[in-house]
Every structure is written in structure tokens, then in C-alpha cells.
Amino acid sequence: SVNPMVYEAQFFGFTPQTCMLRVYIAFQDYLFETMQVVDSVILKKLDAIPNCKISPSEIRKSTEKFLLFMKEHFEKLFGKMEEVLLQLVLNIPKNVLLPEDKVQEQYPYSKEQLQALQEEIQQLQQQYRAEAAAGQALRAELEEQKAVQAELEKILQWFDGLDNICREHGISNFKESFAFLTQNSKKLQELLKDVEVKSK
């Protein structure tokens, strides 16, 4: 049932109980030290008084009596002080969220939700890598296409060149020209036959 006051420790840098303990020990030490001084001062004064019938042990007993009395009251009063300080001064009310923890209310992510988010991120990274590789593949194909197109256009140009040569030499239509030549050579052959027959 002891409240460790960890949230307060997060804010202050120390637990309130540690602080109160420090104060308690320091106050108690001062009380004892001061009483010790009182005791030694009285004993010194006694030494200076001639024929003094008061013994040092008597003084010691008186000091102890007074110290005991003071300690009792000290404990009671300190207890009350501690209670007030722990409840009202060195505490963070339940409804208060420290500024550094605002993110906990803005992003209340459970472990599972966070895992899902991390998995989603991993997936996106994989997708991006795949798209990047796909982009490279597409660009590589574009380069390949340039080379292939260049070759095909060269062949087409060659065909156009053939057509130009034919045109330059007056052959607009090879088929027709060959048909014409074949016909003519057939005619020539027939003429030759005719001439041979007539000369015989």
C-alpha cells in the first residue's frame, strides 16, 4: 500500500520520500548537535563555578531529558509536516499529465497496434524497393528499345534506299519492268525463229 510516487520522481528527479528523509535526518542531526553544544557549554560553565555541587552526569541527564522531550515533539511535528508536503507540495495530482508524456494521450498505442504499424512500415519499405527495381527494369527496357529501334530503322532505311536506286535508274516497278523485259525477249526469240524459218 505504499505509494512509491514514481511519477513525482520523474518530475522532481528524486522521490518525495527521499527528500523528506533527507530533511528529517538533517533536522534531527541539527537538533542532536545543538543539544550537544548546549550540554558542553553548560559543563564548561560549571567548571568555571567554584564549589559547584552539580555533577556533569546530572547535566547529562538533564540534556537527555530535554532532548527526549524535543525528539518526541520533533517526531510528531515532522510527521504532520511530511504529510502536508507529500500531499500538497511534492505530489502530482491524478488528473495531471507531465508535458513529456503528452504523447501518451495523443498516441495511445498498444503493443499490438505498434507492432501492426511496424509491420505496415516494413511492407511499405518492401513495396518501395520492388517499385524501385521495377523502375530500373522499365528504364533498362527503354534503353534496349532504343537500340532495337535504331537497328530496325536502319533496315527500313536500307529498303528505302533500294527503292531510291530503282527510281534513279528509271525502274519504278520491278514487276512490270521484268514482265516487259520477259515479253520482249520472248518476242525477240519468236522473231529469230521467224527469220531462221524464212531464210531456210
Binding site: 517499385e131 534496349e144 528499345q145
Partner: peptide
């Protein structure tokens, strides 16, 4: 792996350019 990408089908259907040139 390309099949999973946005242009996967296009990449997968790449013609054989080497064959095209050989045909020429």
C-alpha cells in the same frame, strides 16, 4: 518479384528483343 509491383504485368510481358533482331 515484378508481378507484385504496379507495372508488373508490363514488365513480365517484355518481348524478346534479341529474337526480333535475329529475325531481321
Amino acid at each position: 518479384d515484378y508481378l507484385q509491383t504496379s507495372q508488373g504485368q508490363i514488365i513480365s510481358s517484355k518481348p524478346n528483343y534479341q529474337q526480333i533482331l535475329e529475325q531481321q
